[in-house]
Design a protein around this nucleic acid. Sequence first.
DNA 1: ATTAGAAATGCAATCGATTGCCAGAAAAGA
DNA 2: TCTTTTCTGGCAATCGATTGCATTTCTAAT
Lengths: 341, 341
Amino acid sequence: MKTGNEITIHDIARELKISASTVSRALNNNPRISKATKEKIREAALKMGYRPNSIASQLRTKKTNTIGVVIPRISRHFFSSAISGIEDVAYRNGYSVIITQSEEDYEREKLNVQSLFSNRVDGIIVSLAMGSENFDHFKLFTDKKIPLVFFDRYCQEISTPQVLIDDFEGGYQATKHLIEQGCRNIVHIGGPQKLNIYANRLKGYQQALEDARIRFKESNFYVSDLTRKAGERIVEEIFAAEEKPDAIFCANDTSALSIIQYAKANGIRIPEDLCIIGFSNEPYSELLTPSLSTVAQPGFEMGQTAAEMVIKQITEKTIEDTKIIMPTQLIIRESTLKKQQ
Amino acid sequence: MKTGNEITIHDIARELKISASTVSRALNNNPRISKATKEKIREAALKMGYRPNSIASQLRTKKTNTIGVVIPRISRHFFSSAISGIEDVAYRNGYSVIITQSEEDYEREKLNVQSLFSNRVDGIIVSLAMGSENFDHFKLFTDKKIPLVFFDRYCQEISTPQVLIDDFEGGYQATKHLIEQGCRNIVHIGGPQKLNIYANRLKGYQQALEDARIRFKESNFYVSDLTRKAGERIVEEIFAAEEKPDAIFCANDTSALSIIQYAKANGIRIPEDLCIIGFSNEPYSELLTPSLSTVAQPGFEMGQTAAEMVIKQITEKTIEDTKIIMPTQLIIRESTLKKQQ
DNA sequence: ATTAGAAATGCAATCGATTGCCAGAAAAGA
DNA sequence: TCTTTTCTGGCAATCGATTGCATTTCTAAT
């Protein structure tokens, strides 16, 4: 009871007139300690209210049992599901999780990564910010061979495990579905093409057009940051143009929402005049009127997989370079489902 | 360069032929070190790629600069906003944040609290799980005088700072608004009454009725866990009964959503036949058709305030017992706004 | 030139748990 | 009975940064 208040293994050792090493080993269930002694020590530890000081242990073992997470924003449903998946796996394996948000900002992402490094996390899971231009901040991790796993939004320049979804296929299916509904003049509102996910959704869209022998028109492709505001701006632009589209495939639900609201306000009938499909299956998409067709991403499972991958790398001390691609699921709702024609 | 790869203050000291203490002090900007030396040391540190080992520092100073957070679930918009508020303040003050989810489960909450304690967080911010029956796990913190702040859902038995919203007033305003719309037979669907927030919303409802000289009927009050499922069950029960209500005040938006969907499916007109108001202003509530009236909570600001309070207690080493009550905001939308009569 | 006093820096213990190596005791074999 | 193994357990160094106290160096005053 010397040290302030905190009970240490030394206090237990003194109490039991044995050495601290024995206490440490007993509590870690080391086979070198006899059953009887272990029992005695555990009992004393419990009685004295001992709580291991993980900081001390971390310093000595150079393991923090902590996984860092860097995501754009926690409030997006896809990411909060992913976090739940990460936590699920992490806690079951005895890891804590430190979550940080970049808020789509490069500087903030950099700071977060540095802070996680200083906190000596055993590994990190990252989904890039839209604003990220440079990836040097990850060298901190790759140089020291600290496991790094990207999910959803990754960076090609760094060879490290990735958990992705099949954005190409998602974009393909969404577009194909629109074509099957009879749409021919399909606009695509995409995100920053620096990000793999948006580039692939575009490719899927283009491929579906091509397979249906519909020519891809540059003028039918818009890029934005996919916020609601941007959606509102773009939809006005679209409908101010000469030729009106009969369908819009948005790279996320947020911009699809803007379109729906614009359409409703301007007497454009959905899906009769205009079909709309989004991406991500935000919780609200099924609640809209008309309900929004979209492409679902398995957020929770992606989080789980990413966590399993970092933990595997941490424990096995192997830096692999596996890439896991998870399937998307086309969800058809009212916004694209024309009545039997 | 002895120790593996990691640069320590000793490496810098050796390089510059000075002592490690001087390096430490210089990097901490201690006034006892001369400007010239500081400059020299900082330069060397930068050049050598030195990264402070915060674990070592934490062990020595017994400060982790980390705040733990325990919330029911990250996916609820109110909580993710609160987290953003917490992070905002925390990062600006040099703290990391460890977030854990109880998923409304008592056992999980207990585990999370214990884990945060073992991780030696400098303080914790908690919003209780619905399932919490017992609060002994917080003794770990209160006994050791580690700052603990409750927000939104607190526990009366522990005297510690709280950041709350004015649930009474929120319930009162919501009910009063319904009465002003001409509703007289108002049902309230509340949450577990163990939780202060739901008990207070009920009280506000009752007070509003009383002030309008409407008798509170026990049969108009339902308790549930406020999930969508529960909402569906209850609404059927309500409309199976003899006397139909002309308004329903739900303690959250999720159950209000169930009601709206039931009403739409059963030809009950909103707001003409039935007014509905929720609580929390989930992002989807404004997107519903009809859009849902609700009571907004300042989640982000509550998070900020809670974080400021823990940090204040950490730095000033005072355990106060302040209670901050933040205002709610009634948001009137289509689901309660009858046309001019 | 000398020395009190201030300024700058160094020494060594410390935080608490872990672990390689060593030692005593008991068990087994010769 | 004596030597060799096998078990248990202890000693002391270590992880890297911090800090009270001691020491050296410098400034300035006599």
